[in-house]
């Protein structure tokens, strides 16, 4: 190779060495670029909690492979809540999202954003908006939610489009006053669509109820768990073990009544002097109870 190039210096020096170094240079440069793009893509594949995808969005990893960032869902949203993420935001550039506190999903019956999506990044099989799961509302702060302080608010309960199902009000007595009730809102994942109307409506400076990605908001029971009382209903018997009366190792002359009176003394009521003939195993005098066993043993 080298002898050839010295013999013909005028010829273009495209020899093997030059070719390989050129190729290595290009591969290195482009490789670095690819690495940067790849790492960037990895990082922006985690959707931040404040950003909510439109209804019917595929799970995030599939969504990022299917969404072409065309913005047609944005255009077809009659309330203009959707936005394409701009470079510099923490959402994957160009992908659509909305922010519940400033512009929640109004849950249109015909869900116009879904048919607008040409690549089915928004699942076209979703036709009932009540079945969409954009996220899950969570009462994130019971310390500031005024309902938990005993005040009547119920705004989130009242604006909820799946009213009375996604958010219900419990009744709890107010231990502070002793005579009043507290009506805390409780969200049910079975019905909450994650539209964010409750978060928008929350009267606090910073909402106490927030829509979170379902992955953050929900726990998941161990897969080996069987809730006995539920499988009992399904199977007609308890699962995995049949109901069996537990044997308590109690002192002689006592037994335990499960789901009843609890610890019971077997002997008939003791007639305690001065107490009349009351049919109670326990005297009002604690000493009598403490001493009773001893007396009988003698």
């Amino acid at each position: 190779m080298s002898s050839e190039s010295t013999r013909k210096p005028a010829a273009k020096p495209v020899n093997r060495r030059r070719f390989l170094t050129d190729m290595a240079k290009t591969a290195c440069g482009v490789g670095l670029f690819g690495l940067a793009v790849g790492l960037n893509a990895r990082q922006s594949s985690a959707l931040p909690a404040h950003a909510i995808r439109p209804p019917g969005a595929l799970k995030e990893s599939d969504f990022l492979a299917a969404c072409t960032r065309c913005g047609m869902c944005v255009r077809d949203c009659p309330y203009g809540i959707l936005k394409l993420a701009e470079p510099g935001e923490d959402v994957a550039t160009g992908t659509p999202y909305f922010t519940a506190r400033t512009g929640p999903c109004e849950m249109c019956d015909d869900i116009p954003c879904i048919p607008a999506c040409p690549t089915h990044a928004l699942d076209h099989s979703l036709t009932d908006i009540n079945k969409s799961r954009m996220g899950l509302a969570v009462v994130v702060d019971q310390e500031t939610c005024i309902a938990f302080r005993g005040l009547r608010c119920e705004v989130c309960f009242n604006v909820c489009p799946v009213r009375g199902k996604a958010i219900t009000l419990e009744v709890v007595s107010n231990p502070r006053t002793g005579i009043h009730a507290i009506f805390p809102p409780v969200v049910h994942s079975s019905d909450c669509t994650g539209c964010g109307l409750c978060e928008k409506a929350c009267i606090l400076e910073e909402a106490a109820i927030k829509v979170l990605p379902t992955r953050l908001a929900k726990g998941e029971l161990g897969h080996h768990y069987r809730l006995g009382w539920e499988s009992k209903g399904d199977l007609g018997k308890a699962f995995p073990t049949a109901d069996k009366e537990h044997v308590y190792r109690l002192p002689e002359g006592m037994h335990y009544e499960h789901a009843g009176r609890g610890l019971v003394k077997d002997q008939p009521a003791v007639t305690v002097p001065g107490q009349g003939n009351k049919k109670t195993p326990f005297s009002s005098n604690p000493l009598d109870t403490l001493n009773s066993g001893i007396r009988e043993a003698k």
Binding site: G31, G34, G38, S61, T68
Partner: peptide
């Protein structure tokens, strides 16, 4: 590189 990054990340990486 564009195709490879899409393959490796499972997303439209270059579109970012």
């Amino acid at each position: 590189a564009v195709v490879l990054t899409a393959l490796a990340t499972g997303t439209l990486a270059y579109e970012l």
